[in-house]
Amino acid sequence: MSEEEKLKAALARLEHSIRKVIETRGYSRETRALKLLSELIQEQLTNGHTRHSTRSIR
């Protein structure tokens, strides 16, 4: 499994967890932590090796 595939798999699991937590407990401190990590991964995937400016993600 490549690093990109591992990130995509982790992102899918995190997004599933976020949905579940929001359904049961709403947007909580726990959701915030999960969301933070998922956005960090999303940024890596979108920017691919960070050759693109992060400012393009608005």
């Binding site: 915030r32 932590a33 969301k35 933070l36 956005e39 960090l40 999303q42 940024e43 992060t54 400012r55 993600i57 608005r58």
Partner: peptide, 12 residues
């Protein structure tokens, strides 16, 4: 930073 990640980080 104007990025989604930075917005969550700022809240944190």
């Amino acid at each position: 930073s104007f990025s989604p990640f930075s917005s969550y980080l700022t809240q944190e």
